[in-house]
Design a protein around this nucleic acid. Structure first.
Lengths: 210, 210, 210, 210
DNA sequence: CATGAATGAGGTTTCATTCAT
DNA sequence: TATGAATGAAACCTCATTCAT
């Protein structure tokens, strides 16, 4: 088992104040993300970023080694939020109830991290290969987690036999798409309505036919 | 009623040979698209494109007014294929059968135009507002078309009462995601298996509960 | 009454140090102008300019938004010098003496700003319409100023009746031509001799015939 | 005495039909000149020229060796017209009458060849050194010719003692400026009025004081 | 003769990154 | 620690010229 090193620790910095570095990076990422959403990563210059942060260009480079590192931070934030999300126990023994909670929470997470989700979809090339793999890893964990509940439901006969991996994938996408297409979906319904309708559809699809 | 002008006709060219222009543009777009998929639009230089086309940079600009125009061509190809797709009659009177056909064909289309789908997701900013709106228009048409069948099924009681717009959206996404996440899904199953499983899930979700 | 904004203030810059910007721009313009004189604006590349300034290309663009802006600076320098020139009081009540002073000073100004004069004659297209109009404005003011003295002289009978506007134009051209054709005139005479001879000719032409 | 070879004969051509070549070149020059006036030589592309000539780019290069050759043609036209102009005998024995005719004809020539005059002022660098010298040569001849009459007048006491070279220069410029600043002068007066007024001024300036 | 597609050098401009202050 | 001026590579695009047809 290899030693896990947070990628954030590998980002170069001029500062030794660990806490300050964390705080500044978080700040920079939070100010950058809307710019990336609006104009794309490549069309957002470091100068733009520094302006959005009310910092000098040099200051940005005090806390980061390169522009690409911001992409990394954005990805890491998504990753850590997903890990935290999976840390929650939705351990209702009833598969249907459990699924219901998870779908709802997953959609809410994607809603909250909308810009991060967008970034991961649109700028995969701007977060080096290793980070992409780290992200893929949690995605797989997430899918596995969804799958576990589904399997439990299938085993107990609550759900019909199905391709649980694909079903888990659909749940995953269900959350992502709320983030990705909120400009469209938001005109049709609220998040709660979305959650409710999609949960119904998913569960209906999981239940055995009459 | 405004006169429809193909955006391709608005792209500047040095040539008057309409047929040649069409052919060369198609060629350029087809060679560019894999580069965009691999490296992203902004990180693909016109020089890269010209090399991929075995042309000089000048030759590329003989048929195009700007690099952005290639994005437009890619979008237009998707658009015209979608229009053609909707032109087909899947007019089985039985909603279930009809839905089955459409989902299958839609997924096959997205599979065939995988790189175009990716491009539309990843590079929306590189195809100018007007073209984005043209694309959004056919997307809506497509959704409306899906919805129509669903409504028919709901009206006749074949399908359960549901938010047909959201359901149509899910079908749409179902195709897109095969294109977008083929690197993952392709390891789990073939396109036909994907179609079959997703169709089952969708139809199961649409049928009334026992 | 509209607020006058110096065109220099409209030129994009990356710096906020107003004084530095002014100084660097002046420097860049002063080094560029001889190149323009020698090779023409369009045949002087920004790389040539940056070399002449012992700067990198990027540094030039730190203080200017575009190459064309240098043309604007050159024009503005001429303009402001002309305004200053007109600010001087050559208020000798005797028209002849007054005319004499003005012609001399005008020729000296054109001599000093030789390259600017050349630039305005040769590169009118490289300084944008608005600036051309600003220049035309001061030219007209200058002509009006010359005319005023002529009119005074005509009114008092010192000068013969004449088309004062054309005469003013001739004075104006007299200065310009020393700048424009110094390569020729300079071989025949010194500036002082030119001034003296032209003043004689002009005044002789203005005086009533015997 | 070196053999004079018309520069036009040195321009490369693919054609052997001497007369056709002459005719086509004249045509090309006449269609190009307005473009040069409007946009400048460097900003007029060979494509623009070929379009203005209703020719293909290749056709232009059949009759010319390079774009610069057009500048040469424009200069040569001015030159040959000036030579023809000087060939006329304005051999009125009376200096005043002779001067009057010459000024008038010179201004009319400059009016007719306005665009050529402009070109020579604005694009000297686009007509290689040798041609510039050829032009300078006729200019000097022209000046000498003007001077001759002036000298005659001074010798006979009709004109006051003066710097005849400078006076000749002024006559020369007088014609050029009508061409160069017609956009301004044309608003004040007609060509005939200009000729009349300038002739009066020049002759008045040449006559002895009372 | 005529055409116009093709070439590729070179132009202007941008921007991630460094480093003297 | 913070600043922002400076660098220079590399991007997009143009255009004089050639040459196969």
């Amino acid at each position: 088992m290899r030693l896990e090193v947070s990628p954030e620790a590998t980002i170069r910095t001029m500062s030794n104040d660990h806490e300050l570095v964390r705080e500044r990076r978080r700040f920079i990422a939070s100010r950058s993300l809307p710019l990336f959403s609006k104009n794309g990563f490549d069309r957002t210059s470091v100068r733009d970023i520094s302006k959005a942060c009310d910092m000098s260009v040099g200051a940005v480079y005090h806390y980061l080694g390169s522009k690409d590192d911001i992409g990394l931070l954005v990805a890491e934030q998504m990753r850590s939020e997903m890990l935290e999300f999976m840390g929650h126990a939705f351990d209702d023994p009833r598969p249907v109830e459990s699924l219901r909670s998870i779908i709802a929470e997953w959609c809410r997470l994607c809603d909250r991290l909308q810009d991060n989700v967008l970034f991961l979809y649109q700028e995969p090339r701007n977060i080096g290969k290793p980070i992409q793999e780290r992200i893929a890893e949690v995605e797989l964990q997430c899918l596995a987690w969804f799958e576990e509940i589904l399997c439990k439901g299938v085993d107990t006969g609550t759900f019909r036999p199905m391709d649980t991996r694909l079903f888990a994938f659909n749940i995953y996408i269900c959350g992502n798409m709320w983030a990705f297409r909120r400009w469209y979906l938001g005109k049709l319904m609220t998040l709660d309505q979305y959650i409710s309708a999609q949960t119904d559809a998913l569960i209906n699809s999981a239940l055995p036919k009459s």
